[in-house]
Computed example of a mutant assay.
Amino acid sequence: MSSTLGTGASTEMELGADVIEASRVNGTRVYNTDGDNLGHIHDIVIGKRDGRVRYAIMSFGGFLGIGEDYHPLPWEVLKYDERQGGYVVGITIDQLKEAPRYGATAQPDWLDPAYGRRINDYYGVAYY
């Protein structure tokens, strides 16, 4: 892997196919398996102790940031698709409308294990 970090010339970095900077994940489009654009990655949630990405927070709906809902998606349900230049999740728009979510003015309780279990149960993924 080559890097220009530390040279002062640039903060650009050539990364391998299996790694990406968190700043580049934000804004990446999310599609379902039918190719429908569901939204984009708004943020990611990382375990403090183990450093594992737990959830991608997907922005869904709204217009110019108004009326958006945020859907925590377990990282394991997302697959990157090179052709689409985005992540793909096996969920329909109707299923997404029923999925766990929160509004722009709400803050989820990441410290509550029941909250994480509810998200993971909805997507059929084991809780940590």
Score class of each variant (00 low, 15 high):
residue 13 M to D: 11
residue 127 Y to F: 10
residue 17 A to L: 07
residue 2 S to E: 15
residue 117 R to E: 14
residue 31 Y to A: 01
residue 61 G to A: 00
residue 67 G to M: 03
residue 83 R to L: 08
residue 15 L to M: 15
residue 18 D to S: 11
residue 5 L to E: 13
residue 5 L to D: 11
residue 19 V to Y: 03
residue 40 H to A: 06
residue 81 D to V: 01
residue 36 D to V: 02
residue 126 A to T: 03
residue 71 H to C: 05
residue 11 T to S: 08
residue 12 E to A: 12
residue 126 A to W: 03
residue 5 L to C: 12
residue 74 P to F: 13
residue 37 N to M: 06
residue 106 A to W: 04
residue 126 A to L: 05
residue 86 G to H: 07
residue 39 G to A: 02
residue 98 E to Q: 10
residue 36 D to H: 01
residue 128 Y to M: 05
residue 20 I to R: 09
residue 60 F to D: 00
residue 112 D to R: 14
residue 34 D to T: 12
residue 45 V to K: 15
residue 34 D to N: 07
residue 106 A to G: 00
residue 54 R to W: 04
residue 111 L to Y: 12
residue 7 T to A: 08
residue 51 G to H: 12
residue 31 Y to M: 02
residue 117 R to I: 06
residue 104 A to Y: 07
residue 29 R to L: 07
residue 88 V to Q: 10
residue 56 A to N: 06
residue 90 G to Q: 15
residue 42 H to S: 04
residue 9 A to H: 13
residue 42 H to Q: 06
residue 9 A to L: 15
residue 61 G to P: 00
residue 23 S to A: 07
residue 128 Y to K: 12
residue 26 N to T: 04
residue 112 D to F: 15
residue 23 S to G: 06
residue 59 S to K: 01
residue 124 G to K: 02
residue 42 H to E: 11
residue 23 S to Q: 03
residue 102 Y to D: 12
residue 11 T to Q: 13
residue 39 G to I: 03
residue 43 D to H: 08
residue 8 G to N: 12
residue 85 G to D: 02
residue 85 G to R: 05
residue 94 D to Y: 08
